[in-house]
């Protein structure tokens, strides 16, 4: 698949309007699905990224990092 096809599909809009566009969108989806399926090291790394994001947003941001009202404006 050529890089121009990516740009073309996105430029034409996210929702495919013609059969050609639908084919292109399918190609893109297949590209990612295949890529994720055939990952070797990537699986372990994605797991690590997800754990990290859960810790950051699900624990740290939720329980420890609540925005504080600034006192400088008072």
């Amino acid at each position: 698949m050529h890089i121009r096809e990516f740009f073309y599909t996105f430029a034409a809009g996210i929702i495919p309007k013609t059969r050609i566009q639908m084919e292109k969108l399918k190609k893109i989806v297949r590209f990612y699905v295949d890529g994720f399926k055939h990952m070797t090291w990537g699986k372990e790394l994605w797991l690590l990224i997800i754990i990290k994001l859960v810790i950051m947003f699900g624990i740290l941001r939720l329980f420890f990092f609540q925005p504080v009202a600034p006192s400088i404006a008072m």
Partner: peptide
């Protein structure tokens, strides 16, 4: 890249929590 991704986000949390006057200013 995977190891380092999102480590900078914590800095942005800290702006809001620990340096709110700075963030406002």
């Amino acid at each position: 890249f995977a190891i380092g991704v999102a480590t900078g986000i914590i800095l942005e949390f800290e702006f809001g929590t620990n340096f709110s006057n700075y963030s406002w200013f």
